[in-house]
Computed example of a mutant assay.
Amino acid sequence: MSAVTAEKNNSLWSDARHRLMRNRAALISLIVLTVIIFCCLVLPLLGFLHDPNAQALPDKNLAPSGAHWFGTDNLGRDIFARVVYGGRISIAVGLITTLVSVTIGVCYGAISGYVSGRTDAIMMRIVDILYALPFLIIVILLGKTIEPATAKLTDTVVGWFTSADASVESINATRAWIEPITTLVPLFVAIGALSWLTVSRIVRAQVQGVAKQEFVEAARSLGLGNFRILFRHILPNTLGPIIVYTTLTIPSVMLFEATLSFLGMGVKPPYASWGNLINEGANLMLSNIWLLFFPTLLFSATLFALNFLGDGLRDALDPRSAKD
């Protein structure tokens, strides 16, 4: 019986993969995302990019050329290098923050949906109260509260990647790629700790539906504990909606980070994310349109690709589409 069930489960996931591959918009979006992520993560390691923070005033406000593919800004910094390094930060914000929020939301919603009754009602009223809070203000206040700990965190992480006898140049080089991420830890925690509300409701509804099925009753009759039933048998059957929601959450988190950076409350100069690059470009668009055009292009392409991929995953994992 278990072999038949495993074969059926494999065929369902196989059918979903085939449906996703037939969705041209989702497939193209996946390719675009792969190229953008590859460029942002790998190109800085190859060593041929300009220093994104190096200023060269004689070369300021240059148009795109062979020496500077995306031109330079008003301080002579290479826009291509800043867009690539900024993309690394924006993507990291989207992935890490989404992971935090989905983890909290899945656990909270699964427990609420499984226990039901008065406990479920209390847990959902808490969610309703949190929904009523001003999200942007709470994120800013929470981020400012835990921000003083980031300097100590940066020193700790730098120590992990450098030896005791490392040179000052080596330590500074390591700090240059670690510090932009660690300074955003308050942002990761603040957004992730407050953006799990919707996913908790989605998981709760899914768990309540799956918990009524016969295999759950069979698991209870075998004497399995509630924890094992919930996390080993019920949650795996709700992965489809969770995956879709995760894919659609990443662009919304990246957009929120861009909003905070645009307002000057995200990535701190001289480091860059797509959000504060767009902010700089908006301020200087009359004299240097390239400073606005290229970060906006990459950011928009990433958001569109993530949304189209999320739509494709939703269609592929929808059981009703298996009849097509």
Rank of each mutant, 00 (worst) to 15 (best):
G66C: 03
D73C: 04
L43I: 10
V100M: 13
T34V: 14
K60R: 15
V35P: 10
S29D: 02
M21E: 12
F80V: 02
A56S: 14
R88M: 03
G113A: 09
R125L: 01
V106W: 05
D78H: 06
S116C: 11
R24H: 14
G87P: 05
G76F: 04
I111A: 10
L57P: 02
S90P: 06
V115T: 13
G113R: 09
V35D: 06
A81I: 00
G117A: 11
V84K: 07
R125T: 00
R24S: 14
A25G: 08
N53R: 12
N23V: 05
I79T: 12
T34P: 00
R22Y: 10
A63S: 15
Q55S: 14
I31S: 12
V32N: 10
F80T: 02
R82G: 00
M123I: 09
G86I: 02
D59P: 00
I31F: 15
G113E: 09
G109H: 10
T34Q: 00
V102W: 10
G86N: 02
T72P: 07
A92N: 00
T119F: 15
L46K: 06
F38G: 13
L62V: 04
I96D: 00
L20S: 06
G76C: 06
T119C: 11
G109L: 08
R118I: 12
L75H: 07
A26T: 05
T103G: 11
V115P: 04
G86P: 01
L27G: 01
A110H: 08
I89Q: 09
P58F: 02
L43V: 10
G86R: 01
A26G: 12
R19W: 03
I79M: 09
L95G: 00
F38A: 14
L41K: 03
G105A: 09
G109R: 10
A54Y: 11
N74D: 13
I79P: 05
V115A: 08
K60Q: 13
Y85A: 09
G117P: 06
V106K: 08
L27N: 08
S116P: 00
H50A: 12
D59T: 06
I111F: 13
G76A: 03
L30V: 05
C40A: 14
L20R: 06
P44Y: 08
N23K: 08
D120Q: 11
R19M: 11
Y114H: 09
F70I: 03
L49W: 10
R118C: 00
P58D: 07
F38R: 01
L30S: 15
K60G: 00
S101R: 11
V83G: 07
G86F: 01
G71C: 08
I111M: 11
S112A: 15
H18R: 15
I79Q: 11
F38K: 04
T103I: 09
G66E: 02
I89Y: 01
H18Y: 12
L49D: 02
P52K: 05
S29G: 13
A81N: 06
R118M: 11
T98S: 15
G105P: 10
V127P: 11
I28H: 01
A110R: 08
G109F: 07
N61Q: 05
L57T: 04
L57F: 13
T98Y: 04
G87A: 04
N23C: 08
R24Y: 12
V83F: 07
R82N: 00
T72E: 03
I122K: 06
W69P: 04
A25S: 14
C107I: 15
A54K: 15
F70D: 04
D78F: 06
I28Y: 14
F70Y: 12
G71M: 05
H68K: 08
L33I: 11
V100E: 00
R125E: 04
